[in-house]
Computed example of a mutant assay.
Amino acid sequence: MLSGIRWIEVAFALGSLLTVGILSVAVSTQHAALTTLLVVPLCALLLLRRSAPLVSSIGIYALSLLQVFVFGTPLPVNFVVLFALYSVTVYGSRAAGVVALIGGYIGAVIFSLMLAPWWWSAGESLFYFIPTAFAVTVAWALGLVRRSRRERGEALEERERALAAGRHSEAELAVAAERARIAREMHDVVAHSLAVIIAQADGGRYAARQDPEVAVKALETVADIGRASLSDIRRILGVLRSEDGDGPLVQPQPTGEDLEELVQRVRDTGAHVSYVTLGEPKPLLPGMGLALQRVCQEALTNSLKHAGPGAKMSVLLQWTDDVVILQVDDDGRGAAALTDGAGGGLVGMRERAQLFGGHVVAGPRPTGGFRVKLTLPLQPVKEPV
């Protein structure tokens, strides 16, 4: 309770003691000692107006009532009752604020009767009661306004904390999910490459006895696949590198290079999607077909979500001697976001492209709509062993 006292409460209590407290002692010269005994705890209870508003208000109300009945007349120190009413309305429960308001009105009645008993002059009693009750009402109303602002501020702060925590969690989940997908791709690349290497090594071992040239060719194939696999692993590990080495076990992810099937699944939802291929298809590096499929899937999904109803989409797969180009367009609103704000979609596309030395360009088209263009080299980037 005492640990919650701040310097502003200390200053407020001292200020009250040095003003209304000293003024009360000066007014009650005949009972100066007794007045001091009542004034000091009354002002001291203001220290608890934030940390224990109910205790503070009950103590102030009780001491003020005791002072009135002991001296038979109000003193300036009774103004701290208004401070207590304000504080319990702001920092206490709503029920405590209502009870304190009723207590304030009762105190206004006692105050007016002390100064002008109604059996002597009802008009004079009302003259004292009305402004006193008005002061009580104003103190309570100001407390309600301050309480409303404080609760609104706390609600906004809590919302900001929740949003920040949500954004942090979404970012972590997006990164973790993307790393898990890339790890599954690494599993596929390594498994495929090792299977070919083992098959070529076994074949070369037996062929060496009959045809040395076949054995040499098998060894060359093993070396080429080994270099390509090493390059793939280095690219993947560069993306997955993190300080936390404890990651979840993952299962191999099935690959798929048939974009037409993916387009057909989107068509089955009722969307207008065209699919065009240009050039002669070329052999793809291990894992590249999955990258094409995932980028195409992400681009079509974002078009479905953001392009608007009735938008038309097109998928172009273009083959050249050196690169394969995937281009996904829509004629929608042109401001389609790649993600919901966390950045996972575009980051995932770029990471998949970077695995093979490619790149992704995404943004609104000049003629309207949105475009995602993925370019991947058909030859592995050579790296020194």
Rank of each mutant, 00 (worst) to 15 (best):
A165D: 09
A135M: 14
G92R: 04
A162L: 14
F83T: 10
V98C: 12
E172I: 11
S121I: 00
E154A: 13
A174I: 08
A96Y: 04
R161K: 11
F69S: 12
Y86E: 12
A100C: 08
G92H: 03
E154M: 12
W119G: 01
L82P: 00
L82N: 06
F129I: 00
V99Q: 06
G97R: 01
V77M: 09
L75N: 03
W118G: 05
V70T: 10
F71R: 00
R161A: 12
M114D: 14
P76A: 03
W120Y: 10
R146E: 12
G92N: 01
A141V: 15
M114F: 14
F129G: 03
E157L: 14
R94I: 02
A165W: 00
V90K: 08
F134Y: 15
L144H: 04
S125T: 10
V109Y: 13
N78Q: 14
V98I: 15
R152D: 15
V99F: 05
P76Q: 00
L115I: 04
N78M: 09
V99N: 07
L156T: 00
A122Q: 05
A174M: 09
F127N: 05
E158F: 08
T73M: 06
E170V: 14
A141N: 04
V68H: 15
G153L: 15
V90G: 02
T137E: 10
F129H: 00
T132Q: 13
S93W: 04
E154K: 09
E160W: 10
A135G: 15
N78F: 10
L142V: 02
I130M: 08
A84W: 03
E160M: 11
A95M: 08
V80P: 01
S121H: 02
W140C: 08
E157T: 08
G107H: 15
G103P: 07
A174L: 04
L113T: 03
G166T: 14
G104F: 04
V99W: 06
V81C: 15
F83I: 09
V77Y: 00
V77T: 12
G72W: 00
E151C: 06
Y105W: 09
L85M: 11
M114Q: 15
R159H: 13
W120R: 11
A171R: 15
T73V: 14
F83V: 14
Y128R: 01
S148N: 14
L85I: 13
A116S: 15
A108Q: 03
F127Q: 06
P74H: 03
R161F: 03
G72M: 01
R161V: 07
L75Q: 10
T132K: 14
L144K: 11
G166V: 07
H168F: 08
A122H: 04
L173W: 11
L156S: 11
G123Y: 01
R147H: 05
G97I: 08
P131H: 02
L113K: 02
L163N: 04
M114L: 14
F79D: 08
V109F: 11
R146K: 13
S121V: 00
P131D: 07
V81W: 07
W140N: 12
S112R: 05
A162R: 13
I110D: 05
S87K: 04
A141M: 12
L75H: 13
I130L: 09
F79L: 10
L115H: 04
I106G: 05
M114E: 14
S112E: 04
R161N: 01
F111N: 10
G123M: 10
L126Y: 07
